[in-house]
C-alpha cells in the first residue's frame, strides 16, 4: 500500500471491485452502492476529523447542501447533477469556511467544535423545514428514471450507480493519498498532534484548519448530490438529522482515523452488518437494533483497537520495521487528555 508503487493500490482495489456486479444479485449490489456512498462520505469526513483531529458532528449539513441543491436544480431547469457537484461543492466549501472561521478564530476544538457543528446542522433542519421552495418538511422527490442517463446520473439498474460511485470514490481516495503525502497533509496532522508546537515551527495553523474544513465540506456535498440521485428523495431529517452525521464518523473511527483506507474498510464492514441486522428477526422486532449493534462494535473497537482496523494494521507493520509514507493514525481517545498548556494565558513562570 505504501512506497513508490503505493498509488497503484487504489486502482487495483477499485478494479477488483468493478467486477462485483458480475457476481452480486440486485439486492447485494444495492448494498454495495450504499457501502461505497458511505465510504465516500466517511473519507471526506476523515480529512478534517481524522487527519485534522477536528471531529465534525455536522457533516450532514454539507451533505444536505449538495443533496437539496442538486434536487432543486434537477426539478427546476434540469441541471445535471455532475454540474451540481461542482456548484454545491463550492457552496458547501464556503459554508464550511464560515463555520470554520467562527470556530477556529476562537481556537475551538474537541467537544466544543463538535457542538458548534451540531448546532449548525440542527438549525438547518428547521430552516429547510420551513422553506417552501425546498418542499418544506415534505422534502423533494425526483422523478424515477425510465432510462439510463449518465448526464443526469439516473440509471434503471444498480449497475450504473455502482460504477458512478466507484469512480467518485477512486478519485477521492487518490486525492486523499496525494494530500496526505504532501506538505499540507503533514501540517494538518501536526496541528492535530500539537497545535502550539506546529505554530512555533512555522505552520499557519488557522489557515491549515480552514483548508481542511473547506475541502471536507466540499467533498461531502458531492456525496450529498450522489445521495439524492440514488434515492430520488430528500427531506430535512434524512440529511440534517443527527443520525447521518454520527454514522459518517462511526465508519471512519471503526475503520481507522487518518488512514486513506480506514473509512472505506469501516463502511464496508459496518453497512452490511446494519443491513443484515435490520432484516433479521431481531431487527424486525426492534427498529433500532442495528444502532445497538453499532454501539457494541464501537465499544469493542475502542477497547481493543483504538486506532481502528486499518490503524491496527499500520501499528503491526511499524512493529516489524516497515516504514510509512505518511504519519500514522491517532488513537481515538489519546491516553493523555488534551489540556491547554498552563503557561499560555495563565501566569507563566
Amino acid at each position: 500500500m505504501k512506497g513508490r508503487w503505493g498509488w497503484v493500490t487504489p486502482f487495483v482495489v477499485c478494479g477488483l471491485a468493478a467486477l462485483l456486479p458480475l457476481f452480486l444479485s440486485k439486492y447485494y449490489l444495492h448494498m454495495a452502492v450504499i457501502v461505497l456512498m458511505w465510504a465516500f462520505l466517511a473519507v471526506a469526513w476523515n480529512i478534517l476529523g481524522g487527519y485534522g483531529g477536528l471531529h465534525s458532528l455536522g457533516n450532514g449539513l454539507f451533505m444536505g447542501v449538495g443533496g437539496y441543491g442538486a434536487a432543486y436544480l434537477v426539478l427546476h431547469g434540469g441541471v445535471s447533477p455532475w454540474l451540481s457537484m461542482v456548484i454545491f461543492g463550492v457552496v458547501a466549501g464556503v459554508m464550511g469556511a464560515f463555520v470554520g472561521y467562527l470556530c477556529f478564530r476562537y481556537g475551538l476544538k474537541g467537544a466544543y467544535f463538535a457542538l458548534v457543528t451540531i448546532a449548525f446542522t440542527e438549525a438547518a433542519v428547521y430552516v429547510v423545514s420551513n422553506w417552501g421552495a425546498l418542499g418544506a418538511s415534505n422534502g423533494l422527490s425526483l422523478p424515477i428514471a425510465k432510462e439510463n442517463n449518465l448526464a443526469m446520473l439516473q440509471f434503471t439498474s444498480e449497475k450504473g450507480y455502482f460504477y458512478a460511485i466507484l469512480a467518485l470514490l477512486l478519485v477521492l481516495v487518490l486525492f486523499t493519498r496525494w494530500l496526505a503525502g504532501r506538505r499540507f497533509g503533514y501540517r494538518l496532522i501536526s496541528v492535530r498532534e500539537n497545535e502550539e508546537a506546529a505554530e512555533a515551527l512555522g505552520v499557519g495553523t488557522f489557515a491549515t484548519k480552514m483548508w481542511a474544513i473547506v475541502l471536507s465540506a466540499a467533498i461531502t456535498a458531492v456525496g450529498g448530490v450522489f445521495y439524492v440521485t440514488l434515492f430520488n428523495y430528500i427531506d430535512p431529517r434524512s440529511v440534517f438529522g443527527e443520525a447521518i452525521s454520527v454514522q459518517i464518523l462511526l465508519y471512519a473511527i471503526v475503520g481507522g482515523l487518518s488512514t486513506v483506507w480506514g473509512p472505506v474498510v469501516g463502511a464496508a464492514i459496518l453497512v452490511p452488518i446494519a443491513e443484515i441486522v435490520r432484516s433479521s428477526a431481531l431487527g424486525q422486532k426492534f427498529q433500532g437494533a442495528y444502532l445497538l449493534t453499532y454501539g457494541v462494535i464501537l465499544v469493542v473497537t475502542m477497547l481493543f483497537m483504538p486506532k481502528g482496523i486499518v490503524g491496527l494494521a499500520h501499528d503491526i507493520r511499524r512493529r516489524f520495521g516497515g516504514r510509512s509514507a505518511a504519519p500514522g493514525p491517532p488513537a481515538v481517545f489519546p491516553e493523555k487528555l488534551e489540556t491547554e498548556s498552563a503557561g499560555k494565558d495563565g501566569l507563566a513562570p
Partner: peptide, 9 residues
C-alpha cells in the same frame, strides 16, 4: 520548556 512533540509522528 515542556517538550512539545507530535506524539503519533
Amino acid at each position: 520548556q515542556v517538550v512539545q512533540p507530535f506524539p503519533e509522528m
